[in-house]
Structure formats: structure tokens, C-alpha cells
């Protein structure tokens, strides 16, 4: 969505005397540019809504026709982590809305601060999500074709490690970029990478929260199959598939037939949501870069507003995902 809101500032060849630099050549007034960008963003959002609608339709069809699967499966989802992540996203929405306000009032410091908090919240959310995924994969709760719930943990922390690895690399890269920028006296880069490095550390805070929150809330996240972790145990069971429904039926009397469908839907829904979070982080980083360059002005805050709309939509999707996936009885 970046290209929707980006002005042709660089391309503007000013033949009209009163054409400010941020105003693209084919617009008459800043307001026209802002209204157009905003309408474009709303149109993008409604295509996002229709995009997610397919997942909600799939969810509704399977829940209506196989409620037993949902009742069985919900016990594997940790309500406390879901609620925690809801609060994290709501907080990020608040800071995002505040960032929009700051950009409208040309309060650049506030804008930078709020953008940074929003990015940090996104990383925090993803950290919690990584713990949730790894817990499920540890006990064989994969999508339908690999679905094989077991009473034992497999692979233990290794799955969590692999999920964390990209973020470790990102954090290290950002810290390195910060240090290099500092050494080269590249002020803009130093501040940009520094803020992002700090924010990315929130991912690991999220991982920590993923362990602490359920313990504090006293909820049992892993359902009846949960036992203590056995780190380092071989993970050959994880790849064993129970694709054949008849087999699964005979093998595991506890889980209803085709229970894996729930987890398929769960992973696609939360996975695509997470992809949108990551997209949002990139867009927010772009805003941060421009905010550090002081590019936003009283008549030119459209990009902040548009990314804000996108970010709220991501929040909106989660507002529905949380009760639909976590709060089932």
C-alpha cells in the first residue's frame, strides 16, 4: 500500500508557482491529494476485508457443520495468550491513532515515539504468536494432513528456536546497522536503526510473555495432551502423518474425526494475519524513516493516516479472530 500514498514529490516539476513540493503534479490542492489517497486506502481496505472474508466463510462453514471439532480443538488454544495479544494490538492501535494525531499537529517527536511503540507492539505480538505455534507443533497439532496429536512433546524448544531465528537475525542486523551508522556519524541512520533495533527486541519480550502469561493466569494451554517438555527428544513423530481419517479415527479416540481442519483454518487465519502484521511493520518503518526526515507537514500527513487505517484493519481482523478461535465452548 506504500505506493498508494506516496506522493510524486520527487517527480514534481513545479510549473505552478504555488505547487508545494509534496503535492504531486496531477493534483490541484493538498486536500485533493489527501482525499484521493484516503479513498484509495479505503478501497484497499475493503479488498482486504473481502480477502479475509474467504477465511471467515471457511470458518463458518466448518463450525456450522462440525461443531464438535471446534469444541474439541479450542482447549488447545490458550485464552490468556489470546487475550494478552488482543491487548497488545489494541495498545498498538491506540499509539497508531495517536501517531496520526501527532502528524496532523506536526508534532514530530510524538509521531516518532508513537510509531516506535506501535512497531514494538507488533514485534511483541509476533513473539507471543511464535510461542503459541511452537507449543502446538510440539505436540503434533499441525494442519490437517500432518495432524497427529500425541501425549508427548517432540523437538521441544527447537521449533521455537527456528521460529525465533529470523527475528534474531533481524535484531542482530539492526543492532549492527545502528553501530555502523553511529561510527560513520550517519545521524538519520543511527536513529532509524536504533529505534527499530529497540523495537525488534520486543519480539523476545513477547516470547518471554508467552511463557509467563499462562503461568500467571493459571491456564492450562496445552489441553489434555499436555505434559512436561522433553527437550532434545527425537522429532520423527512430528512428520508422521495421519492423513487417513479412518486411521485417525481408530488411532486416537479422543479427537473427533477431521479435527485437523480446525488447525488448518487456525494456521491460515492467524498466519495470514501475521503476514499482514509483518507488512504493517515494514510500512511503519517507512513512516518512521520519513518522520525522522521531517517530511510530514500540516497539509501532508496522508501517508501516516493511510498506514494507520491499514494498521487498524489488521487490529480489526484480530478483534474477530480472538473470540472465534480462542473463546469457544
Amino acid at each position: 500500500m506504500a505506493s498508494i500514498v506516496e506522493p510524486e514529490a520527487a517527480a514534481t516539476h513545479d510549473h505552478h508557482g504555488d505547487h508545494p513540493e509534496f503535492l504531486a503534479h496531477h493534483f490541484e490542492t493538498p486536500q485533493q491529494q489527501y482525499d484521493t489517497g484516503k479513498l484509495g486506502m479505503w478501497l484497499f481496505l475493503i479488498q482486504e476485508i473481502l480477502f479475509f472474508s474467504g477465511l471467515f466463510v471457511a470458518y463458518a462453514v466448518y463450525r456450522a457443520n462440525h461443531p464438535e471439532i471446534f469444541v474439541y480443538a479450542h482447549q488447545f488454544l490458550d485464552k490468556s495468550l489470546g487475550a494478552f495479544n488482543t491487548v497488545v494490538l489494541l495498545l498498538s492501535s491506540l499509539t497508531m491513532a495517536w501517531a496520526v494525531r501527532d502528524s496532523q499537529l506536526v508534532n514530530n517527536r510524538g509521531l516518532i515515539r508513537n510509531l516506535a511503540i506501535t512497531i514494538a507492539c507488533a514485534f511483541l505480538f509476533l513473539g507471543v504468536k511464535a510461542v503459541e505455534y511452537s507449543h502446538k507443533w510440539d505436540i503434533g497439532l499441525y494442519w490437517a494432513s500432518k495432524f497427529a496429536p500425541t501425549a508427548e512433546h517432540h523437538g521441544g524448544s527447537m521449533i521455537l528456536f527456528w521460529l525465533c531465528l529470523p527475528f534474531i537475525l533481524i535484531s542482530v542486523a539492526l543492532i549492527a546497522a545502528t553501530v555502523v551508522s553511529k561510527q560513520k556519524n550517519y545521524e538519520q541512520g543511527y536513529r532509524f536503526y536504533g529505534i527499530l533495533a529497540l523495537a525488534s527486541v520486543a519480539f523476545f519480550v513477547g516470547v518471554g510473555c508467552g511463557f509467563v502469561v499462562p503461568a500467571v493466569a493459571g491456564s492450562d494451554s496445552h489441553g489434555p495432551a499436555h505434559v512436561e517438555e522433553h527437550a532434545g527428544e527425537s522429532d520423527h513423530h512430528v512428520v508422521a502423518t495421519h492423513a487417513d481419517p479412518a486411521h485417525a479415527l481408530a488411532d486416537d479416540v479422543e479427537s473427533p474425526r477431521n479435527a485437523g481442519i480446525f488447525f488448518s483454518i487456525y494456521y491460515v487465519m492467524t498466519g495470514l494475519h501475521a503476514v499482514h502484521i509483518i507488512g504493517g511493520v515494514i510500512a511503519l518503518a517507512w513512516l518512521l524513516w520519513r518522520a525522522l526526515k521531517r517530511q510530514f507537514q500540516a497539509e501532508y500527513f496522508g501517508p501516516v493516516d493511510s498506514v494507520g487505517l491499514y494498521w487498524h484493519l489488521v487490529d480489526l481482523v484480530w478483534i474477530y479472530l480472538f473470540p472465534l478461535l480462542y473463546l469457544i465452548h
Binding site: Y62, K146, D244, N258, G260, I261, S264, V268
Partner: peptide, 19 residues
Amino acid sequence: VLLAAERVLGIGVFDPKLG
């Protein structure tokens, strides 16, 4: 997306074998 996930991962949303 669902079709590709179906083929790559086997999520089973459209596959009668997996319900």
C-alpha cells in the same frame, strides 16, 4: 492462497480426504 496451501501443506479445507 488456500489452494496453494492445500497443495503445498495439505491443509485439507478443499480436500475430501481430510474432511
